[in-house]
Computed example of a mutant assay.
Amino acid sequence: MNGAIGNLAISLGAMQVARKIPFDDPQVLQYARIGYVATQLSILGLYYYISMVVKKKNDQTVLKYVEPPSPMSPDTEGKLVTTTVRDYDLSEVSKLLRAVYMGILMMAFLHGYLKFTQPLFIQSLMGLKGLYDAKPIAIHILGKPAEGDLKRPFKVAPGLFGGGGASGPQTDKAAITEAEKKVGGKKDD
């Protein structure tokens, strides 16, 4: 099951469970708030720990790939990216942190301003699902080797209807050589 369908299934299941929770009770609401805050702080702490692990490992292995063109402007070509494993992993953790911050802002609006209570429970579960899906966690915390789906650069997960899976970065030598020629760079063999 791909990630988007799994997220949809968890969201729909969590909504059904959340309907049965009596959020009108102030004590239950307080527990839901505490659970949400504890989950978000745990996620932020784990991502911070991963960034510390990445910095400590300091893997300076060169990583070259061609970024896919933007879907909003398909006439442009992908650009060559030359980085290190350390910098790539830090940028991936940064993306995960931004996603958590956006979720917290959204929850502040939904719960703080609109007074919705069910999303507290649902977003707590979705945050844990996000930890399960995070590739830096699999590599740096669980110790899985960086091969297959965990090979850098990470492939873009397909969307709900299967789109987006083919738009991953190109790592083959021909694509890298072609991108180097276009930017006037030199070829390293």
Rank of each mutant, 00 (worst) to 15 (best):
K55N: 07
T171F: 00
L63P: 02
P68T: 09
I50P: 00
Y113M: 11
Y47Q: 12
S51C: 08
Y47A: 03
D149V: 13
E77H: 10
M126K: 05
F23E: 08
E147F: 03
M72V: 13
E92V: 10
M106Q: 04
I10H: 04
D24N: 09
T76Q: 02
V156R: 09
K129V: 09
K55W: 01
I50K: 07
E92H: 00
V62S: 09
S51D: 10
L142M: 14
K129H: 08
D133G: 07
A146E: 03
T84Y: 04
K173P: 04
V156W: 00
Q40R: 14
L110P: 01
A9H: 01
K129W: 10
L110R: 08
A166P: 00
L160H: 02
A38K: 09
I10L: 15
P74M: 12
G13Y: 11
S73L: 12
Y101D: 09
L128V: 11
Y31T: 14
T84M: 03
L80H: 03
L8K: 04
L8I: 13
S11P: 00
L44H: 08
E180S: 09
F116S: 08
V85Y: 03
G130H: 05
L142H: 10
S91G: 04
K144Q: 14
G127I: 11
G164W: 02
Y48I: 11
Q170V: 06
P22I: 12
I21H: 06
G162A: 13
S94T: 10
K151A: 15
I141Y: 04
P74V: 09
L131N: 13
V54S: 08
G6F: 11
K187Q: 07
Y132N: 13
P153R: 02
G3E: 12
I43Y: 05
A174M: 04
T171Q: 03
D188V: 15
T83G: 04
L120M: 15
T117D: 11
A99N: 04
L105R: 02
K64F: 05
G163I: 15
